[in-house]
Nucleic acid binder design. Sequence first.
DNA 1: AGAAAATAGTTACAATTGCAACGAATAATA
DNA 2: TATTATTCGTTGCAATTGTAACTATTTTCT
Lengths: 154, 154
Amino acid sequence: MTKATTLELDRFLPYRLSVLSNIVSTAISGAYEKRFGLTIPQWRVLAVLAMTPDLSAAEVAERTAMDKVAVSRAVASLLRERRVVRRTARADRRRSLLRLSAAGRKVYAQVVPMALDYEKDLLAPLTRKDREAVDRAIHILLDRAAQIGPAHTA
Amino acid sequence: MTKATTLELDRFLPYRLSVLSNIVSTAISGAYEKRFGLTIPQWRVLAVLAMTPDLSAAEVAERTAMDKVAVSRAVASLLRERRVVRRTARADRRRSLLRLSAAGRKVYAQVVPMALDYEKDLLAPLTRKDREAVDRAIHILLDRAAQIGPAHTA
DNA sequence: AGAAAATAGTTACAATTGCAACGAATAATA
DNA sequence: TATTATTCGTTGCAATTGTAACTATTTTCT
């Protein structure tokens, strides 16, 4: 008897993760987009800047797991919409420091409860123990995945 | 005291799911692509056809959670590469029935062990209990997410 | 100091993806 | 049975995304 030769797609973790993540992302981004004209990249940028103002684009990229081009474009649109403001860093004039404008803080304040409610609804049917396990597991898997296949990290 | 007004991105499940799924997908698709010139959509199509031959494109779409355009394109390329063969359904000449060619089965047989090994490595640092919890949780979350936000299903 | 290498961020171009319209075939209805 | 509506799958076009090249600035090395 040789190795198993078939693979059932819906028991394959990478596949299930991808499907789940897509459904969740689509649902959420639909809501952001519809109500606030926010894309997911924009929302991510808002979220990190709300937590930590005066980050550079590169720092935003780090913390959002987005690449620098995506950040650049999201920031460009947020600047156009006056939801973010930018000033050039005194010390290093290549860098620019980003922070939310009043308008940006306002949208953010409206989106956060929506986001948290969605998450709460989503997790509602899980037991406390399962939630904890998922939490732990995602953390471990993120580490592990990064070890196994850096992929872009080249 | 009012509702919490900030959200830490790396504790937000939709975000963490998205990051994890991207890392995993990129790692895997890198390997498929490099070794076999297979994209993820192509791989998904191969996988379902290996399990269940003579599906129509629409049926493939259902089972892979891909939309019909993506399936159409993946199938088109797989036909060009002679990894899949197609015949028109006798009963309904709009439908075409797809199945793997010998070449298709061959790639598939090579990819499966790679895929399973990757999954195994990924899950290795989790305890048995955590693995079970993750399994259960993903299943429940998929259901729940579908309920909350059908999004496209409109 | 001056030249070369590195870094921040943007822009241009190519590839991918999603949506809407379409042609072909079948099913449903009058 | 003729007419209309529906389904299967593909194609064209617009929007999104990724890669590489580029400008401006700063750092490093000689």
